[in-house]
Amino acid sequence: MINPVLYGIFTFLLFVFSILTIAHRDLMKASLSLAVVLFVTAFFYIAFKFEFLGWTQILLYVGGIVVLILFVIMLAREYVGKPLESGFRRTWLGGLVSALIFIFLLWVILSTEFPEIQNFSTEPVKDLPNLLLATHYVLPFEVLSLLLLAALFGGIVIARRE
C-alpha cells in the first residue's frame, strides 16, 4: 500500500505548510505554501492509486489557480517582499468561527461511514464522457459555470466603462 515513513513525512509537510499558508506574514510565501499543500494532497491521491485525480489537482490548482494568485499579488506591488500588517482585533472572532467549523467538520467525518471501493477500472478514458453524462449533476453544473462566466464578463464590462 503506502510506505509508512513517506506517509509520516508527507503528513508532517501538509501540517507545517497548512499552518504557514494562513500564518505567514509575506503574502507571496503564504500562497507558495498553499501550492505545497495542494501538491502534497495530490501525493496522497496518487499514493492511493487515484492517479488521474492527483495529476489533475496539480495541473489545475498548483499550475493554474496558484499562479493566478501569485499574478494578482505581483500586480498589487506593495505586497511583494513586505510583511502584512495585521492587528489582533478580530483574532477572537476568527478563532471562534474556525473552532466551530472545525467541530462541524470533525462531526461530519466521524459520523460518515466511508464505503470501501472494491474494484475500479484502470482504463477509464473511454467511459468517462458516458459516466459523466449518466449522472444528473453534470449538466446543471456546466450550465452554472457558464452563468458564472457570463457574470464575470458582465462584471468586467461594467468595471471598464468608468
Binding site: 507558495l32 499550475g63 501569485l70 484502470t122
Partner: peptide, 23 residues
C-alpha cells in the same frame, strides 16, 4: 499509465521558476 499528465504537470512548474526568479 498517465505519463502525458505527469509530463504536463512537471513541465508546468518551469513557470514557477521564472515567476519566483522575478519576484
Amino acid at each position: 499509465n498517465t505519463s502525458l499528465l505527469f509530463v504536463l504537470v512537471i513541465a508546468g512548474f518551469s513557470t514557477y521558476g521564472i515567476v519566483l526568479g522575478g519576484v
